[in-house]
């Protein structure tokens, strides 16, 4: 009789232990879930690509003689083929240079990022807008950066002019 009572008590203790463990596990899981929603982790950011995308989207006013807003895509395509666009007397090449260098100086250069930013056409560089190596004097020649193995440009990027746009422009300049 005594042994049976002891067995029953043991059984109860085991049940209580299992319930306690289960509750602990539930608390742990809830905590993990809460942690997931509370923490904001800015993932999926890619500085070079985001920079290129933001520059590609730019559309600025082009004072007379053009006198309208103009996409930076159009400015680049213009000076890559037969330049015809002038904004307040500034050629498309100079206007693009001013816009992109203003952006790079206020961001990547200020943040001490090492980078090369150039615009290429058919794999040939059209213009190098900025070459900046943190810790070295800015605006070094591109080949210097290439030669020096210890300088790894962490933000090497280029802007490829969309081929369709080039074809369209070239077509227009040939027929016009």
């Amino acid at each position: 009789m005594k042994a049976k009572a002891q067995m029953e008590i043991m059984g109860l203790v085991i049940i209580v232990l299992i319930l306690a463990l289960g509750m602990l596990f539930m608390v742990f899981l809830t905590g993990q879930e809460k942690k997931k929603t509370d923490e904001f982790s800015p993932q999926g950011t890619n500085l070079p690509q985001d920079m290129i995308d933001a520059i590609k989207n730019i559309r600025v006013s082009c004072p007379p003689p053009t006198g309208r807003t103009i996409a930076i895509d159009d400015l680049m395509a213009d000076f890559a083929s037969y330049p015809t666009i002038y904004c307040n007397g500034t050629s498309s090449a100079n206007y693009t240079y001013r816009i992109v260098s203003n952006i790079l100086d206020n961001t990547l250069v200020n943040w001490s990022k090492t980078f090369v930013f150039r615009i290429v056409k058919d794999e040939q560089p059209l213009i190098t807008i900025r070459t900046y190596a943190y810790g070295k004097s800015p605006f070094q020649e591109l080949d210097t950066v290439k030669r020096n193995e210890s300088w790894k440009p962490i933000c090497f990027d280029r802007y490829d002019i969309p081929q369709e746009q080039l074809k369209e422009r070239n077509g227009r300049s040939h027929t016009g």
Binding site: P42, L47, D50, A54, I58, W111
Partner: peptide, 10 residues
């Protein structure tokens, strides 16, 4: 303390 991040946008 905090982590700071810059994201270029249009």
């Amino acid at each position: 303390s905090f982590i700071q991040l810059y994201v270029p946008v249009s």
